[in-house]
Amino acid sequence: MAHAAEPAGEPVLIALTTPARRSIVDGLLRPPNPSNSAPILDADAPDQHIADFLAGIVHADTGFIARTSSGERALAIVAATAAALCGEDIHTALTTPDIAFLNSLKPPAIEALRTVLLAIETDNVDELTCGLNPLAHS
């Protein structure tokens, strides 16, 4: 018995990647969690310690969590993480974050940054929110 050929269905498009964040800072801040499994960076540590840590962690599969109560330091950590990922000067990014560069990052670059910088933990969310405000609309 011969069967009639069925018409081919229309292709269905599905997303194979996670949706892009609208901003570098979406979901970045959170209260301290003592049961973290990712490495923790004291964002108030000396710049050389942070630079050494970032130079290594960008090549790891774990990502990291930063802890600080300073909005200025939180912004510096975001900038330094981006610099480490791009092979730029981490020390300069820590002392002089390039806001224009950070705000120009495309969604794939933001995702890459947030894959490394998982969160910034703080007891002072208001201070950090103000410190990160220049990035809120990136």
Rank of each mutant, 00 (worst) to 15 (best):
M1N: 09
M1S: 15
H3G: 14
A4P: 06
A5F: 13
A8Q: 13
G9F: 07
G9A: 14
E10A: 15
E10M: 12
P11Q: 10
P11V: 09
P11L: 05
P11Y: 11
I14R: 10
L16A: 13
L16T: 15
T18H: 12
P19R: 14
P19T: 10
R21W: 14
R22D: 15
S23H: 15
I24C: 12
D26R: 15
L28G: 14
L28T: 13
L29F: 08
R30Y: 07
P31Y: 09
P31D: 04
N33A: 07
P34K: 06
N36Q: 07
S37N: 09
A38W: 02
A38V: 01
I40G: 00
L41C: 01
D42F: 04
A43I: 03
D44A: 02
A45P: 01
P46W: 01
D47V: 01
D47N: 07
Q48Y: 04
Q48G: 05
A51F: 00
A51I: 00
L54A: 02
L54D: 01
L54M: 04
L54P: 03
A55M: 00
G56R: 03
V58P: 01
A60E: 06
T62C: 04
F64G: 02
I65Q: 09
I65N: 08
A66T: 03
T68Y: 08
S70G: 02
G71F: 03
G71S: 02
G71T: 03
R73L: 11
I77Y: 05
V78S: 00
V78E: 00
T81G: 03
T81Q: 01
T81I: 01
A82H: 10
A82P: 09
A83Y: 06
L85Y: 14
C86L: 14
G87E: 05
E88K: 05
I90V: 13
I90L: 05
H91T: 03
T92P: 08
L94R: 08
T95D: 06
T95Y: 08
P97V: 11
D98M: 09
D98L: 11
F101V: 12
L102P: 06
N103D: 10
N103T: 08
L105K: 11
K106C: 03
P107V: 02
P107F: 05
P108G: 09
P108L: 12
P108T: 07
P108M: 06
A109Y: 07
A109M: 08
A109C: 08
A109Q: 11
I110A: 10
I110Y: 12
I110D: 03
I110S: 06
E111N: 11
A112Q: 09
R114G: 02
V116P: 00
L117C: 00
L117V: 00
L117W: 00
L118R: 09
L118C: 06
L118G: 05
A119K: 14
E121W: 11
T122D: 01
E127A: 15
L128S: 06
T129E: 05
C130V: 09
C130L: 13
L132W: 13
L132T: 09
N133G: 10
L135Q: 11
S138P: 03
